[in-house]
Design a protein around this nucleic acid. Structure first.
Lengths: 179, 179
DNA sequence: TCAGTCATGTAACCAGTTACATGATTAC
DNA sequence: GTAATCATGTAACTGGTTACATGACTGA
């Protein structure tokens, strides 16, 4: 009953009230995206596999004018989801941050280019903070896990921004630049 | 001259004084690993491709008793590395954090399990902080990009730990647990 | 002598993205 | 009418891990 990575988001999202591939993708894109992304190219085939495996079942939504297939968890699916949530093995934790990699190798770069890099990273994380802030009110109302995760994200990405601000000042001091 | 992701670490590490696949992997594992990993299964084939493409050249190390192939950057390779470092397009930034995904869906979990999850994540990041602290003295001495990256990592992972500590207290209060 | 480390490499697999294709419905 | 959005899906590709295989050298 071992779930593939994408299956975990999908089952979770179905229980969370997102019964179609499309709706799952929509919610992922404004919530889990920053720590767990998913593309249509993963979602639709995985839904089919999950149905084949008996963890979900589906039927076309007749109340909708457009083509629309609604999924729900089977008893098996509920069990598999709970099992994963309660499991206590190693948790996947992977990061790929090209900016940090550049920074690591940045000693050969001109100061101005180094600053440019740091500012780009700062802006990127500030952008995430902004996006999180934009959904904060709605999330606060609902509370629970999603809201906890949101606040966590807000905290760490703000800490990123601070870190880059400090780095920028430090570099400017080092190279004798006057702001 | 577009470098594959792994090519960037490799070229950077060669310039940084790690001329063999083995040594590249060793350094990656204690430095960039937390934001840019690489496995032997990527490194060795990529070295061969880079040589084929003329970005590196190599010869067996005669001064070594064991089999050992030393790579160095060609002029082409130097140029490609510099070009990447100075480029200013979008930077890859990807995270996959299974713990946060669980937390997102954790509302159906018993409080005790929720706390367990939060503690596991806390411990994981504390472990990273410990590992970073272990290499801090050596990195401080050398300074430059690697040291900047290290301090950044220390900062954000400490902020993760704090975040989870707070979350734990919050949950305990919510569920009326007395520490 | 034997465990550990240095050192290179391959094959099978896994998980993911991007781009494309299709078409209906809704809002302006 | 037409642009945006809803909605599903596939094919080609990319980038990566894991496990395995091999063997020499080094230090206790």
């Amino acid at each position: 009953m071992n779930l593939t990575p994408t299956a975990r988001v999908i089952l979770g999202m179905i229980r969370h009230g997102r019964p179609t591939g499309y709706e799952i993708k929509q919610l992922v894109d404004v919530s889990t995206r920053f720590f767990w992304a998913a593309s249509y190219g993963q979602i639709y085939p995985e839904l089919a596999r999950l149905e084949e495996a008996g963890l979900v079942e589906s039927e076309p939504d007749p109340s909708s004018a457009r083509r629309r297939r609604e999924y729900r968890l089977t008893a098996e699916g509920e069990r598999a989801l709970d099992e994963w949530l309660a499991s206590s093995g190693d948790l996947i934790y992977e990061v790929r941050d090209e900016g940090l990699l550049k920074l690591f190798f940045s000693d050969s770069l001109e100061p101005e280019k180094q600053l440019e890099l740091i500012r780009a990273m700062r802006d990127h994380h500030q952008g995430i903070v902004d996006q999180l802030n934009a959904v904060e009110p709605g999330a606060r109302e609902k509370g629970g896990g999603p809201y906890r995760v949101l606040r966590y994200g807000l905290r760490v990405h703000s800490s990123y921004v601070e870190g880059f601000d400090d780095l920028e000042k430090e570099l400017q001091a080092e190279y004798g630049v006057v702001a």
